[in-house]
Simulated assay, not measured.
Amino acid sequence: MTKHPVFNRNPKGNFNKDNQFTQVLIGSDAVLLEDELNEMQAIQSSRVDELYDLQDYDGGKTGLDSNFVYGETYAHEIPAFTAKVAGHMIRVSGYGNTGQFSTVPEDSNIVCLAPMPEGQTEQSDLVFLEVKEEVLTGHEPLFQHGNLDANYRLDNKLIDPRVGHETARRLQLRSKLRLLPNVGELPANQPWPSAIFALDSALDPLGGRYVYDQNGRWRSENGYYAIPIATGVKYKDRLYGITTALWPELIKTYLTYSESGDLIQVDTRLGGVFVLSSTKITHRAEGIDKVTNVKDGRVTTWQCAYGSVPGGGTGMYAVFKKES
């Protein structure tokens, strides 16, 4: 056993989702490589994440709120909340909060909006949650819940005192709240869509550009994920404000009917603009619907009788029932 292990291999071994592997089969009297052990963990983790990711859209999963910090122009408090990102539940607490404001609970997040440029009369800032899975060594600060720039730090016990040096490292989900300032002028009475889509111009810490991925999240080429959390709206002659809970509350369903009254398409849209998924009845014969579903670029087609649901159940009876 070496006293100086080397950690220069891929943390997930040779894992490749496209291989569709379900297990690493270990033989007796065989040399077991670190890549194989790491791949074995990655296979199981990926399967769980993928299953959970299919359940619903990414976004805040507990109530979101915000408060002015008394006496501060730009600082706002967002109480601790939980969000779902890429199959992971993430607790966001204590970001930017070093105890500098005595009236703010220690587990609340502090977000400071950007000052408005000279001569500008209104401005919208986008607050988003950035997440990435990264390697934690035995010599680094261990942030509670993986919240970077938070005041909560735990004891890093990766180095066992019985050995006195690193034997293994950990993969940790790390997150932080980021501000994208001055994302553009706001459409009257509905600022949210323009602010959300400003993520298309955001860059990760390594300079990679964010592009829409799936399930309501953005992803960069460097493995960072991002979801919109809040918008800060500022007017020169009014108070500064921040509006939370914009995601996923802006996801709504839009129905399209034929002239005869039959439902022919169901779209799930973000802010009334961006289509997250679309279900279209492409052919209707006596008692049979042919349904095509498009979600995140994947197309699925099935047939079902009026009132039935693919895979069983009766929950879609009203959707596919021919109106009388």
Results as ranks from 00 to 15, higher is better:
residue 315 G to V: 13
residue 207 G to A: 05
residue 100 Q to R: 10
residue 185 E to N: 11
residue 64 L to T: 10
residue 229 I to E: 01
residue 213 D to N: 10
residue 261 G to L: 01
residue 141 P to S: 09
residue 7 F to E: 07
residue 193 P to A: 03
residue 271 G to Y: 07
residue 49 D to P: 00
residue 245 A to R: 14
residue 79 P to Y: 06
residue 115 P to W: 00
residue 188 A to G: 03
residue 164 G to T: 05
residue 152 Y to S: 13
residue 259 E to V: 09
residue 6 V to F: 05
residue 5 P to I: 07
residue 250 L to Q: 15
residue 208 G to S: 12
residue 270 L to E: 10
residue 100 Q to L: 08
residue 257 Y to E: 06
residue 197 F to P: 02
residue 20 Q to D: 13
residue 59 G to S: 03
residue 301 T to E: 12
residue 4 H to Q: 14
residue 20 Q to M: 15
residue 103 T to C: 07
residue 307 G to S: 03
residue 51 L to W: 08
residue 299 V to G: 04
residue 237 D to Q: 13
residue 61 K to F: 02
residue 137 T to P: 05
residue 58 D to I: 01
residue 5 P to C: 08
residue 235 Y to I: 11
residue 44 Q to T: 12
residue 311 G to S: 06
residue 235 Y to T: 08
residue 42 A to E: 02
residue 171 L to D: 01
residue 54 L to F: 11
residue 221 E to M: 09
residue 84 K to Q: 07
residue 282 T to S: 13
residue 321 K to D: 11
residue 209 R to C: 05
residue 36 E to N: 12
residue 122 E to F: 01
residue 227 I to G: 00
residue 187 P to K: 06
residue 171 L to A: 06
residue 314 T to E: 08
residue 132 K to N: 04
residue 254 Y to G: 05
residue 41 Q to D: 12
residue 153 R to C: 09
residue 229 I to V: 11
residue 224 Y to R: 00
residue 213 D to P: 02
residue 60 G to E: 08
residue 152 Y to K: 12
residue 60 G to C: 12
residue 206 L to S: 15
residue 172 Q to P: 02
residue 222 N to C: 02
residue 70 Y to N: 14
residue 283 H to P: 02
residue 292 T to L: 10
residue 35 D to E: 14
residue 215 N to K: 14
residue 114 A to C: 10
residue 105 P to E: 06
residue 150 A to H: 07
residue 118 E to N: 11
residue 269 R to H: 07
residue 308 S to G: 09
residue 106 E to H: 10
residue 118 E to A: 15
residue 92 V to Y: 04
residue 51 L to G: 06
residue 279 T to H: 02
residue 227 I to P: 00
residue 3 K to F: 06
residue 135 V to F: 00
residue 118 E to L: 12
residue 196 I to P: 01
residue 77 E to R: 09
residue 77 E to L: 11
residue 66 S to P: 01
residue 175 S to H: 09
residue 38 N to P: 09
residue 56 D to N: 13
residue 218 W to D: 00
residue 56 D to A: 14
residue 86 A to T: 00
residue 8 N to F: 05
residue 237 D to P: 01
residue 18 D to E: 15
residue 161 P to S: 05
residue 324 S to Q: 14
residue 147 N to G: 06
residue 262 D to W: 07
residue 27 G to Y: 14
